[in-house]
Nucleic acid binder design. Structure first.
Lengths: 188, 188, 188, 188
DNA sequence: CATGAATGAGAGTTCATTCAT
DNA sequence: GATGAATGAACTCTCATTCAT
């Protein structure tokens, strides 16, 4: 596949992402993609044979620029500040309209054995953050690993709530504050 | 609608629930239901016009026997004991295979404005429980409303994790213990 | 499948036979059949799921009224007269335009393991006929089984020739005469 | 067309022959050929515009090295020996797996007016052979032309049988012996 | 009420054929 | 000459929905 094709593939993935954001995963048809891309029916099949492989390509692309925890890690920040930055960044993705969240959950429901590498990395990062925070006496926590998971579960819960119903930014702020509070931190 | 018809409707909803548990929401066709019920194509349409109304009927039925919090409330239990009982009951539903969870999320993603009455009731119940616990000095919590939501979000997060990936009962136990810990309670 | 359906199925098989006669086997699409029957796309699929099963139904139907050898057997005919009658009957089918021959060969090429029961029966009948003819001293033949096969092979060869190229009735007559001659019989 | 092109054309025909042997005639697509040749889609069209012209080129090539009767004619052989040699050579082609037979019949069914020069030549040759045999009193036959055709028809019948069903070498031997017997010859 | 045959819209998929490079 | 991306026509198959019985 030449250079040109790579670009077209990228273009298709971009358009497809928009479609998945809008319509979820299962509902999307190859025809939807074809129309969104404004290419020919057969043309799409040169690149992707079904919506699943297309969605996986979209996820792949996403993954590249989505290790939020890594993104917010900076020198000079205390563990607590880093954690806050992470949660604030999460808030942004949670509030995002037309995100891939719904589609991704649909996809994961269907492909129960899909790899979830990002999650593992995030968990490990959070655990280290909390452990460091405790060691440096910024935080209080008996079991950093469980606390890290707790944070991830709360974020998932918020994400779902944001997608399925209404959740206000205020409510998210309250939850973030609450979570920090359970670790002995306070947002001033 | 006669008595007989009511029974048939109930029968259809039961069969439909099985189908939705197995295949989610969006993927299910009227044909699937027809086959699961072993009735005629036209027959189904006498009762339900599409999978959406069918699924809503399933949810309705579920709701009746699913107010978990109400179910675990008994006289003589301390707020902490009631909360533990609630979380244990949640654990059971979380671990349940072939539950309606996936289908319900798919449905909620599609019908963003759907009513979520159960949730409101549950939240109110949990809030009262925590407030009582604090008042009676069993628990420690500055903001029972936010804590109640936190519990619900964690449960949602666990539910998702159970559906999409692997989560062990041990991990759920750890999270329950953690949540109780943040309220100043301990599982002995 | 009710009575009505049986009739419709029969109707489809009839129309399908015409299509197969005209276009062979492999070239025929479900769409061709749909159009020939003037029914809906989905309607055809209620009865046949692909052209193969359709063609097999056509063959089945054919088979019922196609045991030529049995058909020409009558009391009072000598073996030689019966054989002649059989060969004359064969000639008619060989000369038939738009027959199923081409389609059948295409089908057999594809389904190498298809059952060919008619052939077995015909062979056994011919063998018995020749054996009887020899016993009654009408015919001369050392190996009736091989002679029977020879007749069938010649008929096949003629059938092919009739389908693929031009063969005149005269030529067929000559071959029939020749075959009878090899058995010590003469057409007067 | 340069020298190089001629070679490429020949290469394509060779690969195409393999495809036709394996899949017959009608089922074969230009895409199949492209893939078998491992050339570009457009490249194939520089040489052949459709599968028909391709198959005709394959037949042409075949024809060159396939005049079996001419091949077995040698000085010093009696007509009977030549005939036997011819039939033995035929047996080999009949038993050959993956031959062009099926494809050729499919092609002939479709192109009813196709030229069949080889056949004419073969018939003439066989007729002369038998006439010579009779003249030299090796054989007995009243009508060599009809007998020649008979042989060709039997061979066709055997060829078909070999392609569509099961025929053993023994059966072919028996038929050859039988055919020779009808001409007053015996295989010792 | 209940049935299930029938319809037709629409999604999936494949390939012959073209054409810019 | 050669390539292979792109197109679009054609075919397969499934289902929601209707309707005569």
């Amino acid at each position: 596949m030449g250079n040109k094709s790579v670009q077209k593939k990228k273009y298709i993935v971009e358009r497809a992402k928009e479609v998945f954001c809008k319509n979820g995963y299962r509902k999307v048809t190859m025809k939807d993609i074809v129309e969104a891309c404004d290419i020919s029916r057969g043309g799409l099949y040169l690149y992707f044979s079904d919506t699943r492989s297309l969605f996986e390509a979209v996820l792949q692309e996403e993954h590249v620029d989505k290790d939020i925890l890594a993104a917010v890690c900076e020198d000079g920040l205390t563990p607590g500040e880093t954690l806050l930055a992470y949660l604030e960044a999460q808030k942004k993705t949670i509030l995002q309209q037309d995100s891939l969240v719904a589609a991704t959950f649909e996809y994961l429901f269907e492909q129960k054995n899909a790899t979830k590498t990002t999650r593992e990395e995030t968990l490990a990062g959070l655990e280290k953050l909390i452990a460091d925070g405790v060691a440096e006496e910024w935080m209080v926590c008996e079991n950093p690993a469980v606390a890290a998971k707790n944070i991830v579960y709360v974020m998932d819960g918020l994400r779902i709530a944001a997608q399925t119903g209404d959740i206000t930014e205020t409510e998210i702020n309250q939850e973030i504050e609450y979570v920090l509070g359970t670790l002995g931190l306070a947002v001033e």
